[in-house]
Design a protein around this nucleic acid. Sequence first.
DNA 1: TTACTAAACAGTAACCAGTATAAACTAATT
DNA 2: AATTAGTTTATACTGGTTACTGTTTAGTAA
Lengths: 143, 143
Amino acid sequence: MKSAEDMVALFRQQGLKITPQRRAIFETLAEGAVHPSAEEVYRRVQEGLPDISRMTVYNTLRELVALGELVEVEDVSSSAMRYDTETGNHHHLFCLGCHALVDVDQSFEALELPQAAAAGYRIVRHQVTFYGYCPTCQKSNPR
Amino acid sequence: MKSAEDMVALFRQQGLKITPQRRAIFETLAEGAVHPSAEEVYRRVQEGLPDISRMTVYNTLRELVALGELVEVEDVSSSAMRYDTETGNHHHLFCLGCHALVDVDQSFEALELPQAAAAGYRIVRHQVTFYGYCPTCQKSNPR
DNA sequence: TTACTAAACAGTAACCAGTATAAACTAATT
DNA sequence: AATTAGTTTATACTGGTTACTGTTTAGTAA
């Protein structure tokens, strides 16, 4: 994730306005959790800016996604989207028990679809997700 | 995907009852699209069974997931879960333009996390998703 | 510094996918 | 046919997200 200042610069360069709300969101993202949900970001930002609207948070997150600064990640079976501040090439380890989502720095560069299987798609990126149980959940979910 | 009869047998063997509703859902899944949403299944089943409740569809889908006959798949940026009738080892090709979701039969068996990266997780399965643009969307979304 | 204007904001209501609950119903069994 | 546990239905509700509308404000230019 870039620093809050980098995002300010990026927004400015796109002709987008820099508001205190947006600045607070950038700062929260820059310091915060790696895979927050929109609601989490909202709550964090609220601590410093109690009157901010949920809408503003959602809108700003959407803009960051459009600019490629955030990537949307699914949280299987929790219905809330999460935002990944690490846009570089990395993958995920998801705990089926507690829904923890962990980054895996391992890169699977070699992963390529043969021409035939790609069905004419122009592939932009790929994402590997490993599903399993974290150490804690292995105890409560044996087998 | 197994045939409707197979699923009837499976349910029976689990001590679950075979109702006309469930039979209709099985048949719809067996003939139908590869990655339907719950709502799509509901609409299809409704054609033959107009009074079926949405709840019944959701419940039955959930049971099929629990029995391993269906796998839940995320539809990035469409907020509805999709159900994959191909439970075997395969991966996905997702079109960022039109949200089409295509199966890739390619298997990436070799894909394993080194002990260190697995952070103590017991890994159950992995899923590779390739993101890109399908031939049609490449035209409208050039670059 | 002031005035201007497009962009952004707040607040509310609405939307959608999915879930909880409880009463009515029915498949399978005796 | 009677029993009963599992199933279905209807309705209400939840949580995450979006639409709308009127108000405020950042950035710009006089």
